[in-house]
Computed example of a mutant assay.
Amino acid sequence: MNEIKKLIFLLFAIFLFCYFFYLLDSNEILEIKHDGLKSFVYFGIIIFSFFSILFAFLSFEGIKLKVLFSFIPIIAFIQILNFGIINTLLNASSWKTQTIVYQNKFDDSKKVEFQMLDIGFAGYDKRTVEVNYITDWFFISKNKGIYNSDWKKINKEVNELELEY
């Protein structure tokens, strides 16, 4: 029985990891650039929220601990149901850089990029945003429209979606 509790605790820890990055990415606070990680987070939040609810009821005997540890998974599950399971799965793809429009002269991690998102049968969503890369897997984006002398125009074609045009 002790091994089962350890496994259930591991599933709960994976759920917390997925939920943390899901909240950051879905609210566009810290966006995930790596497709594998983003898919794991978005698919994991759906799967592990259910198992995390079971974690609370199987691991704890007191009603207070059951309620405390089932609160976050229930909130996550309600958020997913409110947004829609299909919409959550469709948002598992990440924004791809097509063109780097501007580069900051003083900080190489800051760029203005034209990005596209493959939204399936409906085509592509497009945006031009200022991005600040934390790592190759994470970036912070913001809509900014004025680019002064701190920026140099480079118009570098990246084509991460590998579109032919």
Results as ranks from 00 to 15, higher is better:
Asn2Val: 14
Asn2Phe: 13
Glu3Val: 15
Lys5Gly: 11
Lys6Asn: 15
Lys6Thr: 13
Lys6His: 10
Ile8Asp: 08
Phe9Trp: 06
Phe9Gln: 10
Leu10Cys: 07
Leu11Ser: 07
Ala13Glu: 01
Phe17His: 00
Leu24Asp: 01
Asp25Pro: 05
Glu28Thr: 03
Glu28Phe: 08
Leu30Asn: 13
Glu31Ile: 12
Asp35Cys: 03
Asp35Val: 00
Asp35Leu: 00
Ser39Trp: 15
Phe43Trp: 13
Phe43Ser: 13
Gly44Asp: 10
Phe48Gly: 11
Phe48Pro: 03
Phe48Thr: 08
Ser49Cys: 04
Phe50Tyr: 09
Ile53Asn: 01
Leu54Lys: 11
Phe55Ala: 01
Phe55Gln: 05
Ala56Met: 00
Ser59Asn: 12
Glu61Lys: 11
Glu61Asn: 12
Glu61Ile: 03
Glu61Phe: 06
Lys64Pro: 05
Lys66Gly: 07
Leu68Thr: 04
Phe69Leu: 04
Ile72Ser: 09
Ile75Ser: 04
Ile75Gln: 01
Ile75Glu: 02
Ile75Met: 07
Phe77Cys: 03
Ile78Tyr: 00
Ile78Arg: 05
Gln79Cys: 14
Ile80Asn: 11
Asn82Glu: 08
Asn82Arg: 11
Phe83His: 14
Ile85Tyr: 06
Ile86Tyr: 10
Ile86Leu: 08
Thr88Tyr: 07
Leu90Asn: 04
Asn91Tyr: 00
Asn91Asp: 10
Ala92Asp: 07
Ser93His: 13
Ser94Leu: 02
Ser94Gln: 03
Thr97Ser: 10
Thr99Val: 14
Ile100Gly: 06
Ile100Thr: 08
Val101Ser: 03
Tyr102Asn: 05
Asn104Pro: 13
Phe106Met: 15
Phe106Ile: 14
Asp107Trp: 01
Asp108Glu: 11
Asp108Cys: 02
Val112Thr: 09
Glu113Arg: 05
Phe114Gln: 01
Met116Phe: 00
Met116Asn: 07
Met116Cys: 09
Asp118Ala: 13
Gly123Cys: 01
Asp125Phe: 11
Val129Ile: 11
Glu130Phe: 06
Val131Cys: 09
Tyr133Thr: 02
Tyr133Trp: 08
Ile134Leu: 14
Ile134Asn: 08
Thr135His: 08
Thr135Gly: 05
Trp137Met: 09
Trp137Tyr: 12
Phe139Asn: 08
Ile140Asn: 00
Ser141Asn: 03
Ser141Pro: 02
Lys142Leu: 01
Lys144Gly: 09
Lys144Asp: 03
Lys144Phe: 10
Tyr147Pro: 01
Asn148Gly: 13
Ser149Phe: 01
Asp150Ala: 08
Lys152Glu: 15
Lys152Gln: 14
Lys153Gln: 10
Lys153Gly: 07
Asn155Gln: 07
Asn155Cys: 13
Glu157Thr: 05
Asn159Val: 09
Leu161Pro: 05
Leu161Met: 03
Glu164Asn: 14
